[in-house]
Amino acid sequence: MKRTNTPRGGPGSGLLPFLAISFAGAWITMIPLWLDGLRRTDAAQGTPPLAALCMILMMLVPALTAFGLTARRRGPREAVRVLGLSRATPWPREVRSVAIALSIPLGLTAVGLTVSTAAGWYTPAHLPGPGAVAPLVLSALVSVPLYFGEELGWQGYMLPRLLPLGRIRGLMVGGAVWGAWHVPMTALGGSYPGHPALLGILVAVVTATLLGTVIAAVRLSTGSVWAAVAAHVSLNEFALPLTRHVSGALVDPLLAGPLSIATWPASALAVTGVWLAHRRRAARHSPPAVSTATAPTPPA
């Protein structure tokens, strides 16, 4: 049986403090960049050391908040279990879940790049070789703690508190919250350099709602946050850089890549698949309806 821990104290218990601290922490960690006047205005612009440090601190905020709030109520050892840190399924199944989670963002990105190419927004030039993939694997392994920092908060703490809204509604609300949490960075041109901040924020929230729903569904299907971490790693450490590497020209992230509007149709289909799977599961486990025409007459 998949394990999804229900928070004590009623549905949504502890959600508001978590969101307040996580959002405040995101803005506080980005203050040095706002004071420095840093803004990403071009897709070719790299990430300065100060920006990298601020993003690392920002990504750790949700995990520290989730663990602190949970440990305060239930103790550190119980917090490890409640937040999904412990393995919920046998190792072979866990490894298989992680492998599937790694492939999902790459598959969605491939479909999106096909749309971008057909629209004339993207020009594929060559396939990535081992020399291009090896550094990405190393970077992904080093960066796992950072993505774990996010997913422990979103999928380990927030998601169980949103499920009382309804499974699909809770997943999509969680994705929207994830996108809104990125606003301090998105407004500086983080994901969509060279575009108006308001447009970037709008696209980021829609993209996060779709992709966040898929990642949350992965977490629910395994009962562990590790598969969700793998999906997030695949998105940022493989799908994004490979999009740039395969192209023969500078890529506009708004029009091509995993975070682009071209990937929305594929992501929307994936969300629809999650919804249909949930409906089938709910129908399979619901008690059969009793027809009034064939129901036995109670004795007088």
Results as ranks from 00 to 15, higher is better:
4 T>A: 13
4 T>L: 13
5 N>A: 15
12 G>H: 13
20 A>P: 01
25 G>N: 04
31 I>Y: 09
34 W>T: 15
38 L>G: 10
39 R>Q: 15
41 T>S: 05
41 T>K: 07
42 D>V: 04
43 A>C: 07
44 A>L: 11
46 G>A: 09
47 T>G: 11
50 L>H: 06
51 A>T: 11
52 A>F: 15
55 M>G: 15
57 L>E: 12
58 M>N: 12
59 M>W: 04
60 L>F: 05
63 A>D: 11
67 F>V: 08
68 G>S: 01
69 L>D: 07
69 L>R: 05
76 P>S: 04
77 R>K: 09
82 V>F: 13
83 L>A: 09
87 R>L: 14
89 T>R: 10
91 W>H: 06
94 E>D: 10
100 I>F: 10
103 S>D: 07
103 S>G: 11
105 P>M: 05
106 L>A: 06
106 L>Q: 05
106 L>C: 10
110 A>L: 07
113 L>Q: 05
114 T>A: 11
114 T>P: 11
115 V>I: 15
115 V>T: 12
115 V>C: 02
116 S>T: 08
117 T>N: 08
119 A>M: 14
123 T>K: 12
125 A>E: 02
127 L>G: 08
127 L>V: 01
129 G>E: 04
130 P>G: 03
135 P>Y: 07
138 L>M: 05
140 A>F: 02
140 A>N: 10
140 A>P: 04
140 A>T: 10
141 L>H: 05
143 S>E: 10
143 S>Y: 01
144 V>S: 08
145 P>R: 05
146 L>P: 02
146 L>I: 06
147 Y>T: 11
155 Q>G: 14
156 G>D: 14
169 R>Q: 15
169 R>C: 12
172 M>H: 06
181 W>V: 12
187 A>Q: 01
189 G>Y: 09
190 G>Q: 03
191 S>F: 12
192 Y>L: 03
193 P>H: 03
194 G>C: 00
195 H>C: 00
196 P>C: 09
196 P>G: 13
199 L>I: 06
200 G>H: 10
201 I>L: 14
203 V>M: 09
205 V>K: 08
206 V>D: 08
208 A>F: 13
212 G>D: 09
214 V>I: 03
214 V>C: 04
218 V>L: 10
218 V>D: 01
219 R>Q: 13
223 G>H: 01
223 G>R: 01
225 V>D: 09
227 A>G: 03
228 A>P: 05
231 A>G: 09
232 H>K: 04
232 H>N: 12
232 H>I: 06
233 V>D: 15
240 L>T: 13
250 L>T: 04
251 V>A: 00
251 V>W: 06
251 V>S: 02
252 D>S: 02
254 L>A: 01
260 S>E: 08
261 I>C: 07
262 A>D: 06
264 W>F: 11
266 A>K: 02
270 A>I: 02
273 G>T: 07
278 H>V: 00
280 R>Y: 08
280 R>G: 14
288 P>I: 15
290 V>K: 07
291 S>E: 05
291 S>H: 04
292 T>L: 03
296 P>R: 05
